[in-house]
Protein backbone atom coordinates (compact mmCIF):
# COMPACT_ATOMS: atom_id res chain seq x y z
CA UNK A 1 0.00 0.00 0.00
CA UNK A 2 0.98 3.58 -0.52
CA UNK A 3 1.68 5.48 2.68
CA UNK A 4 0.36 8.99 3.24
CA UNK A 5 3.94 10.20 3.65
CA UNK A 6 4.85 8.99 0.17
CA UNK A 7 2.03 10.87 -1.56
CA UNK A 8 3.81 14.26 -1.89
CA UNK A 9 6.81 12.62 -3.61
CA UNK A 10 4.56 10.65 -5.96
CA UNK A 11 2.71 13.80 -6.94
CA UNK A 12 5.96 15.74 -7.34
CA UNK A 13 7.13 13.06 -9.78
CA UNK A 14 3.80 13.13 -11.64
CA UNK A 15 3.94 16.90 -11.88
CA UNK A 16 7.58 16.94 -13.01
CA UNK A 17 6.68 14.35 -15.60
CA UNK A 18 3.86 16.46 -17.04
CA UNK A 19 6.04 19.59 -17.07
CA UNK A 20 8.72 17.68 -19.00
CA UNK A 21 6.20 16.20 -21.44
CA UNK A 22 4.70 19.64 -21.90
CA UNK A 23 8.08 21.22 -22.59
CA UNK A 24 8.87 18.61 -25.24
CA UNK A 25 5.45 18.29 -26.88
CA UNK A 26 4.21 21.86 -26.84
CA UNK A 27 7.90 22.73 -27.24
CA UNK A 28 8.03 21.39 -30.78
CA UNK A 29 4.78 23.05 -31.84
CA UNK A 30 5.74 26.38 -30.21
CA UNK A 31 9.13 26.01 -31.91
CA UNK A 32 7.51 25.49 -35.30
CA UNK A 33 5.51 28.67 -34.65
CA UNK A 34 8.70 30.60 -33.85
CA UNK A 35 10.36 29.46 -37.06
CA UNK A 36 7.51 30.36 -39.47
CA UNK A 37 9.14 32.03 -42.50
CA UNK A 38 7.04 35.08 -43.31
CA UNK A 39 8.29 35.21 -46.92
CA UNK A 40 7.21 31.70 -47.90
CA UNK A 41 3.52 30.85 -47.62
CA UNK A 42 3.85 27.32 -48.97
CA UNK A 43 6.36 26.39 -46.26
CA UNK A 44 4.20 28.03 -43.60
CA UNK A 45 1.25 25.89 -44.68
CA UNK A 46 3.35 22.72 -44.49
CA UNK A 47 4.82 23.64 -41.11
CA UNK A 48 1.45 24.40 -39.57
CA UNK A 49 -0.06 21.27 -41.11
CA UNK A 50 2.67 19.20 -39.42
CA UNK A 51 1.52 20.32 -35.95
CA UNK A 52 -2.21 20.65 -36.74
CA UNK A 53 -3.50 17.40 -35.26
CA UNK A 54 -1.33 17.63 -32.14
CA UNK A 55 -1.06 21.13 -30.70
CA UNK A 56 -4.27 21.01 -28.70
CA UNK A 57 -3.42 17.78 -26.89
CA UNK A 58 0.15 19.03 -26.37
CA UNK A 59 -1.10 22.10 -24.58
CA UNK A 60 -3.25 19.95 -22.31
CA UNK A 61 -0.07 18.79 -20.54
CA UNK A 62 0.36 22.39 -19.34
CA UNK A 63 -3.16 22.32 -17.94
CA UNK A 64 -2.36 19.03 -16.20
CA UNK A 65 0.93 20.36 -14.81
CA UNK A 66 -0.62 23.57 -13.48
CA UNK A 67 -3.63 21.55 -12.34
CA UNK A 68 -1.40 19.18 -10.37
CA UNK A 69 0.47 22.11 -8.84
CA UNK A 70 -2.87 23.67 -7.95
CA UNK A 71 -4.50 20.59 -6.51
CA UNK A 72 -1.52 18.77 -4.97
CA UNK A 73 0.54 21.72 -3.75
CA UNK A 74 -1.97 24.58 -3.39
CA UNK A 75 0.17 26.83 -1.20
CA UNK A 76 3.09 26.56 -3.63
CA UNK A 77 0.72 27.33 -6.50
CA UNK A 78 -0.34 30.49 -4.69
CA UNK A 79 3.23 31.67 -4.06
CA UNK A 80 4.50 30.86 -7.54
CA UNK A 81 1.62 32.42 -9.46
CA UNK A 82 1.61 35.48 -7.26
CA UNK A 83 5.30 36.04 -7.88
CA UNK A 84 4.84 35.41 -11.58
CA UNK A 85 1.56 37.27 -12.02
CA UNK A 86 2.52 39.44 -15.00
CA UNK A 87 4.67 36.88 -16.88
CA UNK A 88 1.72 34.47 -16.48
CA UNK A 89 -0.65 37.00 -18.00
CA UNK A 90 1.72 37.40 -20.95
CA UNK A 91 2.08 33.63 -21.32
CA UNK A 92 -1.69 33.25 -21.47
CA UNK A 93 -2.15 36.06 -23.98
CA UNK A 94 0.56 34.46 -26.13
CA UNK A 95 -1.09 31.04 -25.96
CA UNK A 96 -4.48 32.56 -26.75
CA UNK A 97 -3.21 34.43 -29.79
CA UNK A 98 -1.42 31.48 -31.31
CA UNK A 99 -4.18 28.99 -30.55
CA UNK A 100 -6.83 31.02 -32.32
CA UNK A 101 -4.59 32.18 -35.19
CA UNK A 102 -4.10 28.55 -36.05
CA UNK A 103 -7.81 28.22 -36.76
CA UNK A 104 -8.58 31.67 -38.10
CA UNK A 105 -5.83 31.49 -40.74
CA UNK A 106 -7.58 28.61 -42.46
CA UNK A 107 -10.96 30.31 -42.54
CA UNK A 108 -10.49 33.98 -43.35
CA UNK A 109 -10.09 35.53 -46.78
CA UNK A 110 -6.68 35.00 -48.37
CA UNK A 111 -5.46 38.58 -47.85
CA UNK A 112 -5.82 38.25 -44.08
CA UNK A 113 -4.06 34.91 -43.80
CA UNK A 114 -0.55 36.40 -43.53
CA UNK A 115 -1.73 38.63 -40.68
CA UNK A 116 -2.93 35.66 -38.67
CA UNK A 117 0.35 33.86 -39.43
CA UNK A 118 2.27 36.85 -38.07
CA UNK A 119 0.07 36.75 -34.97
CA UNK A 120 0.75 33.00 -34.67
CA UNK A 121 4.48 33.65 -34.75
CA UNK A 122 4.22 36.55 -32.30
CA UNK A 123 2.00 34.54 -29.94
CA UNK A 124 4.51 31.67 -29.98
CA UNK A 125 7.34 34.06 -29.19
CA UNK A 126 5.47 35.73 -26.31
CA UNK A 127 4.56 32.32 -24.87
CA UNK A 128 8.06 30.83 -25.07
CA UNK A 129 9.79 33.97 -23.80
CA UNK A 130 7.40 34.20 -20.83
CA UNK A 131 7.99 30.55 -19.98
CA UNK A 132 11.75 31.09 -20.10
CA UNK A 133 11.47 34.20 -17.95
CA UNK A 134 9.34 32.32 -15.42
CA UNK A 135 11.88 29.47 -15.28
CA UNK A 136 14.67 32.01 -14.74
CA UNK A 137 12.86 33.66 -11.82
CA UNK A 138 12.14 30.23 -10.31
CA UNK A 139 15.83 29.30 -10.39
CA UNK A 140 16.59 32.68 -8.75
CA UNK A 141 14.18 31.82 -5.94
CA UNK A 142 11.82 34.68 -6.93
CA UNK A 143 14.37 37.20 -5.75
CA UNK A 144 13.43 40.82 -6.44
CA UNK A 145 16.64 42.19 -7.89
CA UNK A 146 18.21 43.44 -11.08
CA UNK A 147 20.27 40.24 -11.36
CA UNK A 148 17.10 38.17 -11.16
CA UNK A 149 15.48 40.12 -13.99
CA UNK A 150 18.66 39.84 -16.05
CA UNK A 151 18.86 36.11 -15.45
CA UNK A 152 15.17 35.83 -16.32
CA UNK A 153 15.79 37.57 -19.64
CA UNK A 154 18.75 35.30 -20.42
CA UNK A 155 16.64 32.30 -19.56
CA UNK A 156 13.88 33.64 -21.84
CA UNK A 157 16.33 33.64 -24.75
CA UNK A 158 17.66 30.20 -23.82
CA UNK A 159 14.23 28.55 -23.57
CA UNK A 160 13.05 30.21 -26.78
CA UNK A 161 16.10 28.81 -28.56
CA UNK A 162 15.59 25.35 -27.09
CA UNK A 163 11.96 25.35 -28.29
CA UNK A 164 13.08 26.53 -31.74
CA UNK A 165 15.61 23.69 -31.73
CA UNK A 166 13.10 20.96 -30.96
CA UNK A 167 10.69 22.56 -33.48
CA UNK A 168 13.39 22.43 -36.16
CA UNK A 169 14.16 18.79 -35.32
CA UNK A 170 10.43 17.96 -35.59
CA UNK A 171 10.43 19.52 -39.05
CA UNK A 172 13.52 17.55 -40.13
CA UNK A 173 11.50 14.44 -39.31
CA UNK A 174 8.19 15.55 -40.85
CA UNK A 175 9.30 17.60 -43.87
CA UNK A 176 11.06 16.91 -47.16
CA UNK A 177 13.05 18.80 -49.79
CA UNK A 178 13.71 22.48 -49.38
CA UNK A 179 11.86 22.85 -46.09
CA UNK A 180 13.84 19.97 -44.59
CA UNK A 181 17.13 21.56 -45.67
CA UNK A 182 16.01 24.80 -44.07
CA UNK A 183 15.06 23.00 -40.88
CA UNK A 184 18.52 21.41 -40.71
CA UNK A 185 20.06 24.87 -40.94
CA UNK A 186 17.72 26.19 -38.23
CA UNK A 187 18.58 23.26 -35.98
CA UNK A 188 22.31 23.85 -36.33
CA UNK A 189 22.03 27.51 -35.34
CA UNK A 190 19.56 27.07 -32.48
CA UNK A 191 21.50 24.00 -31.30
CA UNK A 192 24.65 26.02 -30.72
CA UNK A 193 22.78 28.82 -28.93
CA UNK A 194 20.83 26.35 -26.77
CA UNK A 195 24.08 24.64 -25.81
CA UNK A 196 25.56 27.93 -24.65
CA UNK A 197 22.32 28.69 -22.75
CA UNK A 198 22.28 25.39 -20.89
CA UNK A 199 25.97 25.75 -20.07
CA UNK A 200 25.24 29.24 -18.66
CA UNK A 201 22.51 27.86 -16.38
CA UNK A 202 24.80 25.04 -15.23
CA UNK A 203 27.39 27.59 -14.17
CA UNK A 204 25.06 30.22 -12.73
CA UNK A 205 22.68 27.98 -10.77
CA UNK A 206 25.26 26.67 -8.23
CA UNK A 207 26.78 30.14 -7.89
CA UNK A 208 23.42 31.65 -6.92
CA UNK A 209 22.09 28.76 -4.84
CA UNK A 210 24.53 27.47 -2.24
CA UNK A 211 22.44 24.35 -1.54
CA UNK A 212 22.69 23.43 -5.23
CA UNK A 213 26.48 23.75 -5.16
CA UNK A 214 26.67 21.49 -2.08
CA UNK A 215 24.49 18.88 -3.70
CA UNK A 216 26.53 18.73 -6.89
CA UNK A 217 29.94 18.64 -5.13
CA UNK A 218 29.16 16.31 -2.28
CA UNK A 219 30.51 12.77 -2.96
CA UNK A 220 29.56 10.00 -3.44
CA UNK A 221 26.20 11.16 -4.88
CA UNK A 222 27.89 13.91 -6.88
CA UNK A 223 29.65 11.29 -9.06
CA UNK A 224 26.32 9.78 -10.03
CA UNK A 225 24.77 13.20 -10.55
CA UNK A 226 27.68 14.24 -12.78
CA UNK A 227 26.63 11.71 -15.43
CA UNK A 228 23.51 13.78 -16.15
CA UNK A 229 25.19 16.93 -17.54
CA UNK A 230 27.85 14.73 -19.15
CA UNK A 231 25.15 12.83 -21.04
CA UNK A 232 23.38 16.06 -21.96
CA UNK A 233 26.52 17.52 -23.52
CA UNK A 234 27.27 14.24 -25.28
CA UNK A 235 23.83 14.40 -26.90
CA UNK A 236 24.60 17.91 -28.11
CA UNK A 237 27.88 16.75 -29.69
CA UNK A 238 26.25 13.76 -31.39
CA UNK A 239 23.43 16.01 -32.57
CA UNK A 240 25.82 18.53 -34.01
CA UNK A 241 27.73 15.82 -35.87
CA UNK A 242 24.48 14.30 -37.17
CA UNK A 243 23.14 17.61 -38.45
CA UNK A 244 26.32 18.12 -40.48
CA UNK A 245 25.68 14.87 -42.40
CA UNK A 246 21.94 15.20 -42.96
CA UNK A 247 20.05 14.65 -45.18
CA UNK A 248 21.15 11.10 -45.94
CA UNK A 249 20.07 8.86 -48.81
CA UNK A 250 16.42 7.70 -48.53
CA UNK A 251 16.07 10.14 -45.66
CA UNK A 252 17.68 7.66 -43.26
CA UNK A 253 18.05 8.98 -39.74
CA UNK A 254 15.71 11.95 -40.22
CA UNK A 255 14.23 11.06 -36.82
CA UNK A 256 17.59 11.08 -35.03
CA UNK A 257 17.82 14.85 -34.28
CA UNK A 258 14.36 14.81 -32.70
CA UNK A 259 15.20 11.82 -30.51
CA UNK A 260 18.46 13.48 -29.44
CA UNK A 261 16.52 16.63 -28.67
CA UNK A 262 14.15 14.66 -26.46
CA UNK A 263 17.21 13.25 -24.65
CA UNK A 264 18.65 16.76 -24.22
CA UNK A 265 15.38 18.08 -22.78
CA UNK A 266 15.11 15.08 -20.45
CA UNK A 267 18.66 15.29 -19.08
CA UNK A 268 18.43 19.08 -18.63
CA UNK A 269 15.18 18.64 -16.78
CA UNK A 270 16.54 15.87 -14.57
CA UNK A 271 19.47 18.18 -13.81
CA UNK A 272 17.09 20.90 -12.61
CA UNK A 273 14.98 18.42 -10.67
CA UNK A 274 18.07 17.02 -8.90
CA UNK A 275 19.11 20.58 -8.01
CA UNK A 276 15.82 21.60 -6.48
CA UNK A 277 14.23 18.47 -4.93
CA UNK A 278 12.46 18.64 -2.45
CA UNK A 279 11.90 22.40 -2.88
CA UNK A 280 8.81 23.36 -4.84
CA UNK A 281 9.50 27.02 -4.12
CA UNK A 282 13.31 27.24 -3.77
CA UNK A 283 14.29 27.63 -0.12
CA UNK A 284 10.75 28.56 0.93
CA UNK A 285 8.47 25.57 0.57
CA UNK A 286 9.14 21.84 0.24
CA UNK A 287 6.72 19.50 -1.44
CA UNK A 288 5.93 18.03 1.99
CA UNK A 289 4.97 21.38 3.49
CA UNK A 290 2.92 22.38 0.45
CA UNK A 291 0.99 19.14 -0.09
CA UNK A 292 -2.82 18.87 0.12
CA UNK A 293 -4.67 16.57 2.49
CA UNK A 294 -3.83 12.87 1.95
CA UNK A 295 -7.45 11.81 1.31
CA UNK A 296 -7.62 14.27 -1.58
CA UNK A 297 -4.26 13.22 -3.01
CA UNK A 298 -5.27 9.57 -2.74
CA UNK A 299 -8.48 9.87 -4.76
CA UNK A 300 -6.60 11.75 -7.48
CA UNK A 301 -3.83 9.17 -7.52
CA UNK A 302 -6.24 6.29 -8.07
CA UNK A 303 -7.81 8.19 -10.93
CA UNK A 304 -4.42 9.04 -12.42
CA UNK A 305 -3.22 5.41 -12.25
CA UNK A 306 -6.21 4.30 -14.31
CA UNK A 307 -6.53 7.24 -16.68
CA UNK A 308 -2.93 8.17 -17.54
CA UNK A 309 -2.13 4.81 -19.22
CA UNK A 310 -5.33 5.24 -21.27
CA UNK A 311 -4.24 8.75 -22.23
CA UNK A 312 -0.90 7.30 -23.38
CA UNK A 313 -2.62 4.61 -25.41
CA UNK A 314 -4.79 6.98 -27.39
CA UNK A 315 -2.02 9.55 -27.76
CA UNK A 316 0.14 6.85 -29.37
CA UNK A 317 -2.80 5.94 -31.58
CA UNK A 318 -3.09 9.56 -32.75
CA UNK A 319 0.65 9.75 -33.54
CA UNK A 320 0.39 6.48 -35.47
CA UNK A 321 -2.52 7.82 -37.54
CA UNK A 322 -0.47 10.85 -38.58
CA UNK A 323 2.83 8.97 -38.89
CA UNK A 324 5.28 9.85 -41.66
CA UNK A 325 5.93 12.94 -43.73
CA UNK A 326 3.38 15.69 -43.68
CA UNK A 327 1.39 15.57 -46.90
CA UNK A 328 -1.26 17.97 -48.06
CA UNK A 329 -2.85 17.72 -44.67
CA UNK A 330 -6.23 19.34 -45.00
CA UNK A 331 -9.00 20.33 -42.76
CA UNK A 332 -12.08 18.21 -43.16
Amino acid sequence: MILDSQLPTIFAVLMAFSVLLYAMLDGYDLGVGLLLPMENEGQRDKMIASIGPFWDANETWLVLAVGLLLVAFPSAHNVILRELYLPTAFLLIGLILRGVSFDFRAKVIAEHKARWDRLFKLGSLVATASQGYMLGLFVMGFEHSFTAVLFGLLSAIGVTMAYALIGACWLIMKAEGELQLRAIKWARITGVVSFVGILAVCITNPIINVFVLERWTNPPLAYIFATVPALCFAFFVIGHATLKRLPLKDDAGCWLPFVLCVCIFTTSFIGLALSFYPWVVPQQLTIFEAASAPESLRIMLYGALVVIPIIFAYTLFAYRVFWGKVGDLRYY
Binding site: G52, P53, F54, D56, A57, E59, T60, V63, L64, G67, G303, A304, V307, I308, I311, Y314, T315, A318, V321, F322, L329, R330, Y331, Y332
Partner: peptide, 17 residues
Protein backbone atom coordinates in the same frame (compact mmCIF):
# COMPACT_ATOMS: atom_id res chain seq x y z
CA UNK B 1 -8.36 17.36 -16.97
CA UNK B 2 -7.72 13.62 -16.88
CA UNK B 3 -11.05 12.28 -18.13
CA UNK B 4 -12.16 15.08 -20.44
CA UNK B 5 -9.44 17.43 -21.69
CA UNK B 6 -7.01 14.83 -23.02
CA UNK B 7 -9.79 12.78 -24.56
CA UNK B 8 -11.33 15.65 -26.49
CA UNK B 9 -8.01 17.25 -27.48
CA UNK B 10 -6.50 14.03 -28.83
CA UNK B 11 -9.50 12.76 -30.76
CA UNK B 12 -10.16 16.26 -32.08
CA UNK B 13 -6.95 15.87 -34.12
CA UNK B 14 -8.29 12.67 -35.69
CA UNK B 15 -11.75 14.17 -36.13
CA UNK B 16 -10.48 17.27 -37.94
CA UNK B 17 -7.55 15.95 -39.95
Amino acid sequence: VMTAFFLEATFLGIMLF
